[in-house]
């Protein structure tokens, strides 16, 4: 089934950016909003709860905006930089695999907040693929928000049952003698994958290599890009 997201999103309704606010964060009426007339009831109730929590002093008026801003810069590129460094520096890779949380923090990134982080290395013999069948656990502090498909009921249902078919849909045809390990995330741990370094990249710089590391390859559903793919 689909998420029916098209029916709910892109309503044109923009509370945060378009609404003028009082000093305490409460929005003023805004004439422009009269044109925007649809918002799902769960969305509206979330905004209502936000207002009430601010009014009651449970949270501060700018807490949410500050949190949004703090998360705004997290992109898959953070993980890609770590992968590229691991590809060129074996000692760094060994440390990253052995002490991920500390190594990621030392590299200047935020490892995870509510959970440990585990780094898994794909090789020519083993392909890791990450899912969270129960919810949507994902190393979002490092890689940014998970893609919609990762959170979909279809991926969560199928990943542990037919991983090779999913990889095939994502463009990765795996040899039968490669062992697939589907990692079903626990709430206390987050996983990210170092994909196999593509052939033909000998002597490349970390920056060049990082361009080959896609978000999906760090989830393990696909391989890193090949030099041909980026030069095409």
């Amino acid at each position: 089934m689909s998420n029916h997201e098209g029916e709910f999103y892109d309503t044109g309704w923009r509370p945060k950016n378009d609404v003028h606010r009082d000093e305490d964060g409460r929005p003023h009426d805004h004439p422009g909003l009269q044109e925007d007339t649809s918002l799902g009831v769960r969305a509206a109730r979330a905004l209502a709860m936000h207002e009430l929590l601010v009014e009651k002093g449970v949270i501060g008026p700018s807490d949410v905006d500050e949190d949004i801003a703090a998360r705004g810069n997290v992109v898959p590129g953070n993980g890609a930089a770590l992968v590229a460094k691991a590809w060129v520096a074996p000692e760094f890779k060994a440390t990253l695999l052995a002490h991920p949380k500390q190594t990621i923090a030392e590299a200047g990134f935020v490892p995870e907040h509510n959970a440990d982080i585990i780094v898994l290395e794909n090789t020519s013999d083993v392909q890791y693929m990450v899912v969270c069948t129960l919810c949507s656990c994902y190393p979002g502090r490092l890689l940014g928000p998970p893609p919609d498909w990762y959170k979909s009921l279809e991926y969560r249902s199928r990943a542990v049952r037919e991983p090779r078919k999913i990889m095939s849909e994502f463009g990765l045809e795996l040899a039968e003698d490669v062992e697939v390990r589907v990692v079903d995330s626990n709430s206390e741990l987050r996983f990210f994958v170092i994909p196999l370094r593509p052939p033909g990249t000998e002597g490349w710089s970390e920056d060049e290599l990082a361009n080959l590391v896609t978000r999906d390859s760090m989830i393990g559903v696909s391989a890193a890009l090949t030099p041909d793919a980026v030069n095409a």
Binding site: V160, R161, E162, P163, R164, K165, E176, D177, V178, E179, V180, R181, V182, V183, D184, N186, E188, L189
Partner: peptide, 13 residues
């Protein structure tokens, strides 16, 4: 499941 006899699921319990 017939895709490969060595494929696995890992999960923390």
């Amino acid at each position: 499941y017939t895709a490969s006899a060595t494929d696995k699921v890992w999960i923390d319990l």
